[in-house]
Write a protein that binds this DNA or RNA. Structure first.
Length: 566
RNA sequence: GACCUGGUAGCUCAGUUGGUAGAGCACCUCCCUUUUAAGGAGGUGGUCCUGGGUUCGAGCCCCAGCCCGGUCACCA
Protein backbone atom coordinates (compact mmCIF):
# COMPACT_ATOMS: atom_id res chain seq x y z
CA UNK A 1 0.00 0.00 0.00
CA UNK A 2 1.32 3.39 -1.02
CA UNK A 3 1.08 5.85 1.86
CA UNK A 4 1.20 9.58 1.51
CA UNK A 5 3.71 11.54 3.56
CA UNK A 6 0.93 12.69 5.88
CA UNK A 7 -0.16 9.12 6.51
CA UNK A 8 3.37 7.99 7.26
CA UNK A 9 3.76 10.76 9.83
CA UNK A 10 0.53 9.73 11.53
CA UNK A 11 1.59 6.09 11.68
CA UNK A 12 4.85 7.15 13.27
CA UNK A 13 2.91 9.19 15.82
CA UNK A 14 0.80 6.13 16.51
CA UNK A 15 3.90 4.12 17.32
CA UNK A 16 5.32 6.89 19.48
CA UNK A 17 2.10 6.96 21.50
CA UNK A 18 2.47 3.24 22.10
CA UNK A 19 6.12 3.75 23.06
CA UNK A 20 4.95 6.24 25.69
CA UNK A 21 2.61 3.59 27.09
CA UNK A 22 -0.50 5.23 25.64
CA UNK A 23 -2.95 2.86 23.96
CA UNK A 24 -4.21 4.74 20.91
CA UNK A 25 -7.26 2.44 20.74
CA UNK A 26 -8.27 1.78 24.35
CA UNK A 27 -11.00 -0.75 25.14
CA UNK A 28 -12.46 0.84 28.26
CA UNK A 29 -15.78 2.63 28.30
CA UNK A 30 -15.29 6.39 28.38
CA UNK A 31 -18.02 7.89 30.53
CA UNK A 32 -19.09 11.36 29.47
CA UNK A 33 -21.16 13.66 31.65
CA UNK A 34 -22.50 16.10 29.09
CA UNK A 35 -22.90 16.77 25.41
CA UNK A 36 -21.53 19.81 23.67
CA UNK A 37 -24.99 20.95 22.72
CA UNK A 38 -26.05 20.91 26.39
CA UNK A 39 -23.08 23.01 27.41
CA UNK A 40 -23.27 25.59 24.66
CA UNK A 41 -27.03 26.00 24.97
CA UNK A 42 -27.05 26.20 28.78
CA UNK A 43 -23.74 27.85 29.61
CA UNK A 44 -25.06 29.47 32.78
CA UNK A 45 -25.88 26.09 34.28
CA UNK A 46 -22.48 24.68 33.36
CA UNK A 47 -20.17 27.62 34.08
CA UNK A 48 -17.44 26.63 36.52
CA UNK A 49 -18.64 23.02 36.58
CA UNK A 50 -16.51 20.05 35.67
CA UNK A 51 -17.57 18.08 32.60
CA UNK A 52 -16.32 15.04 30.73
CA UNK A 53 -16.69 15.16 26.97
CA UNK A 54 -15.64 12.98 24.07
CA UNK A 55 -15.37 13.78 20.41
CA UNK A 56 -13.25 14.40 17.37
CA UNK A 57 -10.64 17.13 17.32
CA UNK A 58 -11.49 19.25 14.28
CA UNK A 59 -8.89 21.99 14.49
CA UNK A 60 -6.04 23.16 16.67
CA UNK A 61 -4.45 26.52 17.39
CA UNK A 62 -1.22 26.04 19.25
CA UNK A 63 0.28 29.09 20.99
CA UNK A 64 3.28 27.92 22.90
CA UNK A 65 2.25 26.68 26.31
CA UNK A 66 -1.45 27.12 25.62
CA UNK A 67 -3.64 25.86 22.82
CA UNK A 68 -7.18 25.93 21.61
CA UNK A 69 -8.84 23.11 19.74
CA UNK A 70 -12.28 22.48 18.38
CA UNK A 71 -14.03 19.36 19.64
CA UNK A 72 -16.95 17.92 17.74
CA UNK A 73 -19.33 15.38 19.21
CA UNK A 74 -22.62 14.05 17.84
CA UNK A 75 -24.45 17.10 19.18
CA UNK A 76 -22.22 19.93 18.00
CA UNK A 77 -18.87 21.67 18.19
CA UNK A 78 -17.17 23.64 20.92
CA UNK A 79 -13.78 24.94 21.83
CA UNK A 80 -11.46 23.36 24.36
CA UNK A 81 -8.55 25.14 26.00
CA UNK A 82 -5.47 23.05 26.61
CA UNK A 83 -2.77 24.47 28.88
CA UNK A 84 0.59 22.81 29.51
CA UNK A 85 0.43 23.20 33.26
CA UNK A 86 -3.13 21.93 33.48
CA UNK A 87 -2.66 18.61 31.68
CA UNK A 88 0.99 18.18 32.61
CA UNK A 89 3.62 20.09 34.55
CA UNK A 90 6.80 22.04 33.99
CA UNK A 91 8.84 19.09 35.34
CA UNK A 92 7.15 16.57 33.07
CA UNK A 93 5.48 18.36 30.18
CA UNK A 94 5.20 15.18 28.07
CA UNK A 95 1.42 15.09 27.93
CA UNK A 96 1.29 18.60 26.53
CA UNK A 97 4.53 19.04 24.62
CA UNK A 98 4.71 15.60 23.11
CA UNK A 99 1.30 13.96 23.18
CA UNK A 100 -0.97 16.91 22.55
CA UNK A 101 1.27 19.09 20.40
CA UNK A 102 3.20 16.47 18.43
CA UNK A 103 1.41 13.15 18.41
CA UNK A 104 -2.21 14.19 18.17
CA UNK A 105 -3.67 15.32 14.89
CA UNK A 106 -6.76 16.87 13.51
CA UNK A 107 -9.36 14.11 13.30
CA UNK A 108 -8.22 12.21 16.37
CA UNK A 109 -10.91 11.19 18.81
CA UNK A 110 -10.18 12.28 22.36
CA UNK A 111 -11.84 12.53 25.73
CA UNK A 112 -11.44 15.57 27.94
CA UNK A 113 -12.24 16.34 31.55
CA UNK A 114 -12.29 19.94 32.61
CA UNK A 115 -14.07 23.06 33.67
CA UNK A 116 -16.54 25.08 31.61
CA UNK A 117 -15.61 28.76 31.21
CA UNK A 118 -15.71 31.65 28.79
CA UNK A 119 -12.55 33.05 27.23
CA UNK A 120 -11.66 36.75 27.09
CA UNK A 121 -13.17 36.85 23.64
CA UNK A 122 -16.38 35.33 24.99
CA UNK A 123 -16.18 31.85 23.53
CA UNK A 124 -17.60 29.05 25.68
CA UNK A 125 -14.77 26.59 26.29
CA UNK A 126 -13.63 23.73 28.46
CA UNK A 127 -10.36 24.18 30.34
CA UNK A 128 -8.89 20.71 29.99
CA UNK A 129 -7.46 19.06 33.10
CA UNK A 130 -7.22 15.53 31.75
CA UNK A 131 -6.87 14.40 28.18
CA UNK A 132 -7.44 10.83 26.98
CA UNK A 133 -6.61 9.46 23.55
CA UNK A 134 -9.63 7.44 22.42
CA UNK A 135 -8.82 6.74 18.78
CA UNK A 136 -5.95 7.79 16.55
CA UNK A 137 -6.90 8.89 13.06
CA UNK A 138 -4.47 7.76 10.36
CA UNK A 139 -5.88 9.67 7.42
CA UNK A 140 -6.00 13.45 7.19
CA UNK A 141 -9.48 14.96 6.95
CA UNK A 142 -10.26 17.69 4.46
CA UNK A 143 -9.64 21.05 6.07
CA UNK A 144 -12.76 23.19 6.00
CA UNK A 145 -12.60 26.59 7.63
CA UNK A 146 -15.35 29.01 8.47
CA UNK A 147 -14.50 32.67 8.88
CA UNK A 148 -15.97 35.31 11.16
CA UNK A 149 -18.75 36.05 8.66
CA UNK A 150 -19.73 32.41 8.60
CA UNK A 151 -18.32 32.02 5.11
CA UNK A 152 -16.97 28.53 4.44
CA UNK A 153 -13.54 28.25 2.86
CA UNK A 154 -12.20 25.25 0.97
CA UNK A 155 -15.48 23.40 1.41
CA UNK A 156 -15.30 19.65 0.91
CA UNK A 157 -17.59 19.77 -2.10
CA UNK A 158 -16.41 17.17 -4.61
CA UNK A 159 -19.56 15.06 -5.04
CA UNK A 160 -17.71 11.94 -6.04
CA UNK A 161 -15.58 11.99 -2.89
CA UNK A 162 -18.50 13.07 -0.73
CA UNK A 163 -20.68 10.14 -1.83
CA UNK A 164 -17.95 7.52 -1.88
CA UNK A 165 -16.71 8.60 1.54
CA UNK A 166 -19.95 9.69 3.14
CA UNK A 167 -18.35 9.27 6.58
CA UNK A 168 -15.94 12.07 5.73
CA UNK A 169 -18.77 14.18 4.34
CA UNK A 170 -20.68 13.73 7.61
CA UNK A 171 -17.65 14.66 9.70
CA UNK A 172 -16.77 17.88 7.93
CA UNK A 173 -20.11 19.04 6.51
CA UNK A 174 -22.52 19.65 9.36
CA UNK A 175 -25.41 20.50 7.04
CA UNK A 176 -25.21 17.01 5.52
CA UNK A 177 -25.81 15.47 8.89
CA UNK A 178 -28.79 17.79 9.34
CA UNK A 179 -30.38 16.42 6.18
CA UNK A 180 -30.22 12.87 7.48
CA UNK A 181 -31.49 13.82 10.91
CA UNK A 182 -34.45 15.42 9.18
CA UNK A 183 -34.96 12.29 7.14
CA UNK A 184 -35.48 10.32 10.32
CA UNK A 185 -37.70 13.04 11.75
CA UNK A 186 -39.90 12.71 8.69
CA UNK A 187 -40.31 8.94 8.99
CA UNK A 188 -40.78 9.22 12.75
CA UNK A 189 -43.47 11.82 12.16
CA UNK A 190 -45.26 9.49 9.76
CA UNK A 191 -45.04 6.50 12.09
CA UNK A 192 -46.39 8.60 14.92
CA UNK A 193 -49.30 9.72 12.76
CA UNK A 194 -50.17 6.16 11.69
CA UNK A 195 -49.58 4.49 15.03
CA UNK A 196 -51.80 7.00 16.80
CA UNK A 197 -54.58 5.89 14.46
CA UNK A 198 -53.91 2.24 15.23
CA UNK A 199 -52.44 1.37 11.83
CA UNK A 200 -50.13 -1.63 11.92
CA UNK A 201 -46.56 -1.42 10.65
CA UNK A 202 -45.69 -4.65 8.85
CA UNK A 203 -42.93 -6.27 6.83
CA UNK A 204 -43.46 -8.15 3.58
CA UNK A 205 -41.06 -10.03 1.28
CA UNK A 206 -38.29 -8.26 -0.54
CA UNK A 207 -37.52 -11.43 -2.51
CA UNK A 208 -40.56 -12.15 -4.64
CA UNK A 209 -41.21 -14.94 -7.15
CA UNK A 210 -43.36 -12.53 -9.19
CA UNK A 211 -42.38 -8.85 -9.16
CA UNK A 212 -45.81 -7.27 -8.92
CA UNK A 213 -47.57 -4.09 -7.89
CA UNK A 214 -45.90 -1.75 -10.37
CA UNK A 215 -44.59 -1.67 -13.89
CA UNK A 216 -40.81 -1.61 -13.89
CA UNK A 217 -37.86 -3.75 -14.80
CA UNK A 218 -36.83 -5.80 -11.77
CA UNK A 219 -33.47 -6.98 -10.49
CA UNK A 220 -33.30 -10.74 -10.79
CA UNK A 221 -31.53 -13.16 -8.52
CA UNK A 222 -31.48 -16.88 -7.89
CA UNK A 223 -32.19 -19.07 -4.90
CA UNK A 224 -29.74 -21.96 -4.90
CA UNK A 225 -31.48 -24.42 -2.58
CA UNK A 226 -34.84 -24.04 -4.33
CA UNK A 227 -33.12 -23.62 -7.70
CA UNK A 228 -35.55 -20.92 -8.77
CA UNK A 229 -35.40 -17.32 -9.91
CA UNK A 230 -36.39 -14.60 -7.46
CA UNK A 231 -36.87 -10.90 -8.00
CA UNK A 232 -36.13 -7.97 -5.74
CA UNK A 233 -39.43 -6.27 -5.20
CA UNK A 234 -40.42 -3.31 -7.34
CA UNK A 235 -43.38 -2.67 -4.99
CA UNK A 236 -45.07 -4.29 -2.02
CA UNK A 237 -48.64 -3.38 -2.95
CA UNK A 238 -49.91 -6.88 -3.66
CA UNK A 239 -48.61 -8.25 -0.35
CA UNK A 240 -50.13 -5.46 1.69
CA UNK A 241 -53.49 -6.03 0.02
CA UNK A 242 -53.26 -9.71 0.92
CA UNK A 243 -52.99 -8.56 4.53
CA UNK A 244 -56.15 -6.48 4.13
CA UNK A 245 -57.83 -9.65 2.83
CA UNK A 246 -56.48 -11.35 5.94
CA UNK A 247 -58.47 -9.02 8.15
CA UNK A 248 -56.18 -6.15 9.12
CA UNK A 249 -57.99 -2.84 8.83
CA UNK A 250 -54.91 -0.78 8.10
CA UNK A 251 -51.33 -1.78 7.36
CA UNK A 252 -48.32 0.22 6.33
CA UNK A 253 -44.72 -0.50 5.45
CA UNK A 254 -41.64 1.57 4.79
CA UNK A 255 -40.31 -0.46 1.92
CA UNK A 256 -37.04 -0.47 0.06
CA UNK A 257 -37.97 -1.12 -3.55
CA UNK A 258 -35.58 -1.92 -6.37
CA UNK A 259 -35.91 -0.97 -10.02
CA UNK A 260 -33.42 -1.89 -12.70
CA UNK A 261 -33.66 1.32 -14.67
CA UNK A 262 -31.80 4.49 -15.45
CA UNK A 263 -30.26 6.61 -12.73
CA UNK A 264 -30.38 10.38 -12.51
CA UNK A 265 -30.71 12.97 -9.84
CA UNK A 266 -34.19 11.80 -8.90
CA UNK A 267 -33.76 8.05 -9.38
CA UNK A 268 -31.62 5.57 -7.46
CA UNK A 269 -31.87 1.80 -8.15
CA UNK A 270 -32.97 1.22 -4.56
CA UNK A 271 -35.32 3.68 -2.98
CA UNK A 272 -37.87 3.91 -0.21
CA UNK A 273 -41.63 4.04 -0.50
CA UNK A 274 -44.15 4.18 2.31
CA UNK A 275 -47.25 2.27 1.32
CA UNK A 276 -50.45 2.38 3.37
CA UNK A 277 -53.73 0.50 2.90
CA UNK A 278 -56.86 1.29 4.88
CA UNK A 279 -60.02 -0.80 4.63
CA UNK A 280 -63.47 0.71 4.05
CA UNK A 281 -61.99 3.99 2.76
CA UNK A 282 -61.90 5.50 -0.71
CA UNK A 283 -59.55 7.83 -2.52
CA UNK A 284 -61.43 10.94 -1.35
CA UNK A 285 -60.76 9.96 2.23
CA UNK A 286 -57.16 9.25 1.29
CA UNK A 287 -56.74 12.78 -0.06
CA UNK A 288 -58.02 14.19 3.24
CA UNK A 289 -55.59 12.02 5.16
CA UNK A 290 -52.66 12.84 2.88
CA UNK A 291 -52.94 16.59 3.23
CA UNK A 292 -53.26 16.28 6.98
CA UNK A 293 -50.23 14.01 7.10
CA UNK A 294 -48.03 16.24 4.96
CA UNK A 295 -48.86 19.36 6.92
CA UNK A 296 -47.85 17.54 10.10
CA UNK A 297 -44.62 16.26 8.55
CA UNK A 298 -43.65 19.74 7.41
CA UNK A 299 -44.27 21.22 10.84
CA UNK A 300 -42.54 18.36 12.69
CA UNK A 301 -39.52 18.66 10.40
CA UNK A 302 -39.13 22.37 9.80
CA UNK A 303 -41.43 23.94 12.37
CA UNK A 304 -43.66 25.40 9.65
CA UNK A 305 -45.90 24.26 6.83
CA UNK A 306 -44.11 26.66 4.47
CA UNK A 307 -41.12 25.04 2.81
CA UNK A 308 -38.55 26.52 0.46
CA UNK A 309 -37.89 24.17 -2.46
CA UNK A 310 -35.31 25.60 -4.83
CA UNK A 311 -36.75 28.86 -6.14
CA UNK A 312 -40.23 28.06 -4.91
CA UNK A 313 -42.01 28.67 -1.64
CA UNK A 314 -44.32 25.69 -1.17
CA UNK A 315 -47.11 25.57 1.36
CA UNK A 316 -48.05 22.19 2.78
CA UNK A 317 -50.95 23.72 4.68
CA UNK A 318 -54.08 21.63 4.04
CA UNK A 319 -56.30 21.47 2.04
CA UNK A 320 -54.86 21.06 -1.47
CA UNK A 321 -56.68 21.64 -4.76
CA UNK A 322 -58.09 18.54 -6.51
CA UNK A 323 -57.97 18.64 -10.30
CA UNK A 324 -59.12 15.80 -12.58
CA UNK A 325 -56.36 14.97 -15.06
CA UNK A 326 -58.56 15.67 -18.10
CA UNK A 327 -59.45 19.04 -16.60
CA UNK A 328 -55.76 19.79 -16.12
CA UNK A 329 -55.09 18.96 -19.78
CA UNK A 330 -58.00 21.16 -20.86
CA UNK A 331 -56.70 24.07 -18.79
CA UNK A 332 -53.12 23.87 -20.00
CA UNK A 333 -53.54 22.78 -23.63
CA UNK A 334 -56.99 24.10 -24.47
CA UNK A 335 -58.11 20.66 -25.69
CA UNK A 336 -60.96 18.77 -24.08
CA UNK A 337 -59.87 15.20 -24.67
CA UNK A 338 -62.63 13.60 -22.58
CA UNK A 339 -64.26 10.76 -24.50
CA UNK A 340 -61.93 11.12 -27.49
CA UNK A 341 -61.13 8.10 -29.59
CA UNK A 342 -57.53 7.00 -30.09
CA UNK A 343 -57.28 8.62 -33.56
CA UNK A 344 -58.57 12.02 -32.41
CA UNK A 345 -56.29 11.98 -29.40
CA UNK A 346 -53.29 11.22 -31.56
CA UNK A 347 -54.16 14.31 -33.58
CA UNK A 348 -54.27 16.45 -30.44
CA UNK A 349 -50.89 15.18 -29.34
CA UNK A 350 -49.36 16.05 -32.70
CA UNK A 351 -50.88 19.54 -32.59
CA UNK A 352 -49.30 20.31 -29.24
CA UNK A 353 -45.97 18.91 -30.35
CA UNK A 354 -45.88 15.51 -28.69
CA UNK A 355 -44.42 12.68 -30.71
CA UNK A 356 -46.76 9.71 -30.90
CA UNK A 357 -46.73 6.38 -32.67
CA UNK A 358 -49.28 3.67 -33.46
CA UNK A 359 -48.41 1.55 -30.42
CA UNK A 360 -49.51 4.25 -27.98
CA UNK A 361 -52.96 3.75 -26.50
CA UNK A 362 -55.31 6.35 -25.04
CA UNK A 363 -53.89 5.99 -21.57
CA UNK A 364 -50.31 6.42 -22.68
CA UNK A 365 -51.15 9.53 -24.72
CA UNK A 366 -53.05 11.16 -21.89
CA UNK A 367 -50.12 10.42 -19.65
CA UNK A 368 -47.81 12.08 -22.17
CA UNK A 369 -50.07 15.13 -22.50
CA UNK A 370 -50.15 15.61 -18.76
CA UNK A 371 -46.48 14.84 -18.28
CA UNK A 372 -45.31 17.21 -21.02
CA UNK A 373 -47.78 20.06 -20.75
CA UNK A 374 -49.10 20.13 -17.16
CA UNK A 375 -47.08 18.28 -14.54
CA UNK A 376 -44.27 20.82 -14.13
CA UNK A 377 -46.80 23.63 -13.57
CA UNK A 378 -48.12 22.22 -10.28
CA UNK A 379 -45.75 23.75 -7.77
CA UNK A 380 -48.10 23.96 -4.81
CA UNK A 381 -49.39 20.57 -3.61
CA UNK A 382 -52.21 19.50 -5.94
CA UNK A 383 -54.12 16.24 -6.24
CA UNK A 384 -54.46 15.21 -9.88
CA UNK A 385 -57.35 12.76 -10.02
CA UNK A 386 -59.30 10.30 -12.16
CA UNK A 387 -56.69 8.77 -14.44
CA UNK A 388 -57.69 6.73 -17.50
CA UNK A 389 -58.34 3.06 -16.87
CA UNK A 390 -55.68 1.78 -19.21
CA UNK A 391 -52.87 3.27 -17.11
CA UNK A 392 -54.12 1.90 -13.81
CA UNK A 393 -54.56 -1.87 -13.73
CA UNK A 394 -54.89 -2.10 -9.93
CA UNK A 395 -57.37 0.73 -9.51
CA UNK A 396 -61.13 0.60 -9.09
CA UNK A 397 -63.23 1.90 -11.92
CA UNK A 398 -64.53 5.41 -11.32
CA UNK A 399 -67.98 5.43 -9.68
CA UNK A 400 -69.46 7.68 -12.39
CA UNK A 401 -67.29 7.17 -15.50
CA UNK A 402 -66.21 3.69 -16.66
CA UNK A 403 -63.33 5.09 -18.76
CA UNK A 404 -61.64 6.47 -15.66
CA UNK A 405 -60.37 5.16 -12.38
CA UNK A 406 -60.46 6.39 -8.80
CA UNK A 407 -56.84 7.31 -8.63
CA UNK A 408 -54.90 10.39 -7.67
CA UNK A 409 -51.31 11.51 -7.81
CA UNK A 410 -50.08 14.27 -5.57
CA UNK A 411 -47.95 16.81 -7.41
CA UNK A 412 -45.52 19.01 -5.51
CA UNK A 413 -42.96 21.32 -7.09
CA UNK A 414 -43.85 19.91 -10.48
CA UNK A 415 -43.10 16.32 -9.49
CA UNK A 416 -45.06 13.29 -8.39
CA UNK A 417 -44.85 12.73 -4.65
CA UNK A 418 -47.60 10.17 -4.03
CA UNK A 419 -49.85 7.80 -5.91
CA UNK A 420 -53.10 6.45 -4.50
CA UNK A 421 -56.23 4.57 -5.43
CA UNK A 422 -59.53 3.27 -4.41
CA UNK A 423 -58.16 -0.24 -4.71
CA UNK A 424 -59.64 -2.61 -7.22
CA UNK A 425 -61.20 -5.46 -5.22
CA UNK A 426 -63.31 -7.12 -7.93
CA UNK A 427 -61.34 -10.30 -8.68
CA UNK A 428 -62.91 -10.84 -12.09
CA UNK A 429 -62.19 -7.26 -13.16
CA UNK A 430 -58.67 -7.61 -11.76
CA UNK A 431 -58.01 -10.72 -13.81
CA UNK A 432 -59.19 -8.94 -16.97
CA UNK A 433 -56.95 -5.95 -16.24
CA UNK A 434 -53.96 -8.25 -15.80
CA UNK A 435 -54.83 -9.95 -19.08
CA UNK A 436 -54.89 -6.54 -20.76
CA UNK A 437 -51.43 -6.00 -19.36
CA UNK A 438 -50.33 -9.29 -20.87
CA UNK A 439 -51.55 -8.04 -24.25
CA UNK A 440 -49.46 -4.90 -23.82
CA UNK A 441 -46.55 -7.12 -22.92
CA UNK A 442 -47.10 -9.16 -26.09
CA UNK A 443 -47.01 -5.89 -28.04
CA UNK A 444 -43.53 -5.30 -26.68
CA UNK A 445 -44.10 -3.30 -23.51
CA UNK A 446 -41.43 -4.87 -21.32
CA UNK A 447 -42.76 -3.14 -18.25
CA UNK A 448 -46.32 -4.43 -18.37
CA UNK A 449 -47.34 -6.32 -15.28
CA UNK A 450 -47.17 -10.05 -14.72
CA UNK A 451 -50.25 -11.96 -13.61
CA UNK A 452 -50.06 -12.87 -9.96
CA UNK A 453 -52.51 -15.78 -9.68
CA UNK A 454 -52.23 -16.00 -5.93
CA UNK A 455 -53.09 -12.33 -5.58
CA UNK A 456 -56.26 -12.86 -7.64
CA UNK A 457 -57.08 -15.89 -5.50
CA UNK A 458 -56.78 -13.69 -2.42
CA UNK A 459 -59.19 -11.17 -3.94
CA UNK A 460 -61.58 -14.04 -4.69
CA UNK A 461 -61.84 -14.70 -0.96
CA UNK A 462 -62.97 -11.07 -0.70
CA UNK A 463 -61.12 -7.85 0.06
CA UNK A 464 -63.07 -5.04 1.69
CA UNK A 465 -63.24 -1.77 -0.21
CA UNK A 466 -59.87 -0.25 0.51
CA UNK A 467 -57.87 2.82 -0.31
CA UNK A 468 -54.11 2.66 -0.64
CA UNK A 469 -51.29 5.13 -1.14
CA UNK A 470 -47.61 5.06 -1.89
CA UNK A 471 -45.46 8.03 -0.92
CA UNK A 472 -41.94 8.37 -2.26
CA UNK A 473 -39.89 8.91 0.85
CA UNK A 474 -36.68 9.96 -0.87
CA UNK A 475 -38.54 12.56 -2.87
CA UNK A 476 -40.40 13.74 0.23
CA UNK A 477 -37.10 14.15 2.05
CA UNK A 478 -35.71 16.06 -0.93
CA UNK A 479 -38.62 18.48 -0.68
CA UNK A 480 -38.50 18.87 3.08
CA UNK A 481 -34.73 19.43 3.10
CA UNK A 482 -34.56 21.48 -0.11
CA UNK A 483 -32.19 19.12 -1.89
CA UNK A 484 -32.32 18.82 -5.68
CA UNK A 485 -30.55 15.46 -5.88
CA UNK A 486 -31.63 12.10 -4.47
CA UNK A 487 -27.99 11.37 -3.68
CA UNK A 488 -28.09 14.09 -1.05
CA UNK A 489 -30.82 12.27 0.89
CA UNK A 490 -29.37 8.75 0.67
CA UNK A 491 -26.46 7.94 2.94
CA UNK A 492 -24.85 5.72 0.33
CA UNK A 493 -26.15 6.43 -3.17
CA UNK A 494 -25.35 3.85 -5.82
CA UNK A 495 -22.01 4.51 -7.55
CA UNK A 496 -19.88 2.71 -10.07
CA UNK A 497 -17.00 0.93 -8.34
CA UNK A 498 -13.89 2.93 -7.61
CA UNK A 499 -10.85 2.29 -9.75
CA UNK A 500 -8.58 -0.32 -8.20
CA UNK A 501 -5.38 1.09 -6.81
CA UNK A 502 -2.57 0.86 -9.33
CA UNK A 503 0.15 -1.68 -8.58
CA UNK A 504 3.60 -0.50 -7.66
CA UNK A 505 5.27 -3.36 -9.50
CA UNK A 506 7.45 -2.63 -12.51
CA UNK A 507 5.76 -2.64 -15.87
CA UNK A 508 7.15 -4.48 -18.87
CA UNK A 509 9.17 -1.56 -20.22
CA UNK A 510 10.72 -0.91 -16.85
CA UNK A 511 11.58 -4.59 -16.48
CA UNK A 512 13.23 -4.64 -19.92
CA UNK A 513 15.37 -1.59 -19.20
CA UNK A 514 16.27 -3.01 -15.81
CA UNK A 515 17.46 -6.25 -17.48
CA UNK A 516 19.83 -4.26 -19.70
CA UNK A 517 21.08 -2.23 -16.74
CA UNK A 518 21.71 -5.30 -14.58
CA UNK A 519 24.31 -6.58 -17.05
CA UNK A 520 26.32 -3.37 -17.27
CA UNK A 521 25.48 -1.54 -14.02
CA UNK A 522 26.38 1.78 -15.62
CA UNK A 523 25.80 2.92 -19.17
CA UNK A 524 25.62 6.10 -21.18
CA UNK A 525 22.05 7.35 -21.28
CA UNK A 526 21.94 7.59 -25.06
CA UNK A 527 23.18 3.99 -25.44
CA UNK A 528 20.64 2.64 -23.00
CA UNK A 529 17.90 4.52 -24.75
CA UNK A 530 18.76 3.13 -28.16
CA UNK A 531 19.19 -0.42 -26.76
CA UNK A 532 15.79 -0.24 -25.14
CA UNK A 533 14.17 0.61 -28.46
CA UNK A 534 11.54 2.70 -26.72
CA UNK A 535 9.83 5.78 -28.13
CA UNK A 536 10.77 9.08 -26.58
CA UNK A 537 7.64 9.23 -24.49
CA UNK A 538 7.90 5.64 -23.32
CA UNK A 539 11.56 6.13 -22.54
CA UNK A 540 10.77 9.16 -20.45
CA UNK A 541 8.00 7.37 -18.56
CA UNK A 542 10.12 4.29 -18.01
CA UNK A 543 13.10 6.19 -16.62
CA UNK A 544 10.86 8.25 -14.38
CA UNK A 545 9.32 5.02 -13.13
CA UNK A 546 12.69 3.40 -12.42
CA UNK A 547 14.03 6.40 -10.56
CA UNK A 548 10.81 6.68 -8.61
CA UNK A 549 11.20 3.09 -7.44
CA UNK A 550 14.80 3.90 -6.58
CA UNK A 551 16.11 1.24 -8.95
CA UNK A 552 18.09 3.39 -11.33
CA UNK A 553 19.39 6.90 -11.28
CA UNK A 554 20.69 9.32 -13.86
CA UNK A 555 24.04 10.97 -13.12
CA UNK A 556 25.45 13.98 -14.84
CA UNK A 557 29.25 14.14 -15.14
CA UNK A 558 31.78 15.82 -17.41
CA UNK A 559 31.67 12.83 -19.77
CA UNK A 560 27.89 13.20 -20.18
CA UNK A 561 24.72 11.58 -18.87
CA UNK A 562 24.92 8.07 -17.42
CA UNK A 563 22.40 5.69 -15.96
CA UNK A 564 23.38 3.38 -13.12
CA UNK A 565 21.74 0.90 -10.80
CA UNK A 566 21.07 2.20 -7.33
C1' G B 1 -27.77 4.99 -24.21
C1' A B 2 -26.42 10.29 -26.60
C1' C B 3 -24.21 15.00 -25.93
C1' C B 4 -21.62 18.68 -22.82
C1' U B 5 -18.23 20.16 -18.23
C1' G B 6 -14.59 18.44 -15.29
C1' G B 7 -10.44 14.95 -13.24
C1' U B 8 -3.29 18.67 -11.24
C1' A B 9 -0.29 18.00 -3.62
C1' G B 10 -4.14 15.34 2.06
C1' C B 11 -8.29 19.43 0.79
C1' U B 12 -9.85 23.76 -2.36
C1' C B 13 -8.02 25.41 -6.84
C1' A B 14 -4.42 28.21 -10.59
C1' G B 15 -1.37 26.67 -14.66
C1' U B 16 0.25 31.71 -20.35
C1' U B 17 1.49 29.98 -28.48
C1' G B 18 3.56 23.04 -25.96
C1' G B 19 9.60 24.56 -22.92
C1' U B 20 12.34 22.36 -15.40
C1' A B 21 4.66 21.75 -12.12
C1' G B 22 2.24 26.60 -8.60
C1' A B 23 -0.86 29.10 -4.50
C1' G B 24 -3.83 28.95 0.04
C1' C B 25 -4.99 25.66 3.83
C1' A B 26 -3.08 21.01 5.95
C1' C B 27 1.74 18.71 7.24
C1' C B 28 7.17 19.09 9.25
C1' U B 29 11.01 22.33 12.17
C1' C B 30 11.30 26.73 15.29
C1' C B 31 8.93 31.07 18.30
C1' C B 32 4.49 32.20 21.06
C1' U B 33 -0.02 31.04 28.22
C1' U B 34 -7.33 33.35 26.53
C1' U B 35 -6.81 32.42 20.48
C1' U B 36 -10.53 31.62 16.76
C1' A B 37 -10.06 31.40 8.73
C1' A B 38 -4.78 32.84 15.45
C1' G B 39 0.03 34.96 14.15
C1' G B 40 5.54 35.05 12.71
C1' A B 41 10.09 32.46 10.26
C1' G B 42 11.77 28.38 7.39
C1' G B 43 10.74 23.66 4.94
C1' U B 44 8.56 18.91 2.89
C1' G B 45 5.05 17.10 -0.33
C1' G B 46 2.96 15.45 -7.33
C1' U B 47 1.63 7.93 -11.36
C1' C B 48 -0.89 16.24 -13.61
C1' C B 49 -7.40 9.95 -14.18
C1' U B 50 -5.48 5.63 -17.51
C1' G B 51 -3.45 3.92 -22.22
C1' G B 52 -1.84 5.12 -27.05
C1' G B 53 -0.22 8.99 -30.66
C1' U B 54 1.99 13.75 -32.61
C1' U B 55 6.57 16.45 -31.18
C1' C B 56 13.42 17.55 -29.95
C1' G B 57 9.98 18.28 -25.85
C1' A B 58 2.89 17.14 -23.65
C1' G B 59 -0.60 18.92 -17.48
C1' C B 60 -1.68 21.57 -22.22
C1' C B 61 -2.58 19.10 -28.94
C1' C B 62 -4.94 14.28 -31.27
C1' C B 63 -7.30 9.21 -30.51
C1' A B 64 -9.40 5.49 -27.21
C1' G B 65 -11.06 4.41 -22.41
C1' C B 66 -12.35 5.16 -16.96
C1' C B 67 -14.87 8.02 -13.10
C1' C B 68 -17.92 12.27 -11.12
C1' G B 69 -21.38 16.00 -12.49
C1' G B 70 -25.05 18.28 -15.91
C1' U B 71 -28.67 18.05 -20.03
C1' C B 72 -31.57 14.76 -22.83
C1' A B 73 -33.59 9.86 -23.66
C1' C B 74 -35.75 6.01 -20.54
C1' C B 75 -38.77 5.84 -16.11
C1' A B 76 -46.83 4.90 -13.58
Amino acid sequence: MQLSALEIIRRESLQKLRDLGINPYPAEEFKTTATIQQITSKFDAFEGKEVVLAGRMMSRRIMGKASFAELKDASGRMQIYVNRDEISSEEDPTMYNTVFKKLLDMGDIIGVKGEVFKTNVGEVSVKVKELTVLSKSLRPLPVVKTDADGKVHDAFADNELRYRRRYVDLIVNDHVKETFIKRTKITNSMREFFNKRGYLEVETPVLQPIPGGAAARPFMTHHNALDMPLYLRIANELYLKRLIVGGFDAVYEFAKDFRNEGMDRTHNPEFTVMELYVAYKDYNWMMDMTEELLEKIAIDTNGTSEVQIGENQVSFKAPYPRVPILEAIKIHTGYDVAGMKEVELRGVCRKVGIEVDETMGIGKMIDELFGEKCEHLYIQPTFITDYPKEMSPLTKEHRTNPDLTERFELMVNGKELANAYSELNDPIDQRERFEDQMKLSAKGDDEAMFIDQDFIRALEYGMPPTSGIGIGIDRLVMFMTNNASIQEVLFFPQMKPEKVAPTVELNDDEKAVFEILKKVEKIALADLKSQSGLSNKKWDKTMKGLSKHKIAKVTNSDEGLFVEIV
